[in-house]
Amino acid sequence: MDFLQFETKLKKLDKQLPEILQRIVLAIGEELLNQIVDEIQRQDLIDTGGLWQSFTQGGENNIWEFDFDRNTLTLEVGSNLPYAEHLNDGYTITKGHFVPGYWKSQGGFVYDPDAKTGFWARPRSFIGRKYFDIALQNTEGGMNALINKLLQKELERMVG
């Protein structure tokens, strides 16, 4: 490749830089969601897919908002499920209340708002499991390597 061809490829790369950066940010967001689901599974926090689904792009109750404004790329990811935050940060039951549902034969409780059976939740505090914080920390730890890998891939595609 001569210098003119190289210069043409660099100019094309410059024009496509916003798209490249968007792909990289979206890949990082996907990686964070994967880390969150892995941490939920590692801690064996739930036996249904509701929380996992909420941390899957396009899943029910998933937050996936991308914004490219004023030379800034922003991607907000997470879950709209109220109990996702409670499970991560901890919570306190200040007043006892009835929780409708039933117990499975393997010992897990299934919430069912229409059930006549259930249990009485007494006042107490629950320590947060910090699954989101742990996943974020794990992702941040490998963030530079991931960004470098994605940039290298894009550069090879554009210039190589």
Rank of each mutant, 00 (worst) to 15 (best):
D2L: 02
D2M: 00
E7K: 15
K9P: 05
K12E: 15
K15F: 15
L17C: 01
L17S: 06
P18K: 13
E19I: 06
E19M: 01
I24S: 03
L26K: 10
A27C: 02
E30D: 15
L32D: 01
L32F: 11
E39S: 03
I40Y: 04
R42L: 08
D44R: 14
D47I: 06
T48D: 05
G49A: 07
Q53T: 14
Q53G: 05
S54V: 13
S54A: 15
F55W: 14
Q57D: 00
G59Q: 08
E60H: 13
N61M: 09
I63F: 07
W64R: 05
E65D: 14
F66R: 04
D67Q: 10
F68H: 14
D69M: 06
T72M: 12
L73G: 14
L73I: 08
V77N: 01
G78A: 13
G78W: 15
N80V: 06
P82I: 13
A84C: 03
H86M: 04
L87Y: 11
L87F: 03
Y91D: 09
Y91L: 05
K95Y: 01
G96C: 02
H97M: 04
H97Q: 11
F98Q: 07
V99N: 04
Y102Q: 07
S105G: 04
Q106C: 02
Q106T: 10
V110E: 07
P113T: 02
D114R: 05
A121F: 04
S125C: 07
S125T: 15
F126Q: 00
R129H: 04
F132Q: 02
I134M: 12
A135E: 11
Q137P: 01
N138H: 08
N138M: 10
E140T: 10
M143K: 14
M143V: 10
M143D: 04
N144V: 10
I147N: 03
N148H: 10
K149N: 14
K149C: 07
Q152S: 12
Q152P: 00
K153T: 15
K153V: 03
R157L: 01
M158Y: 11
V159R: 00
G160C: 07
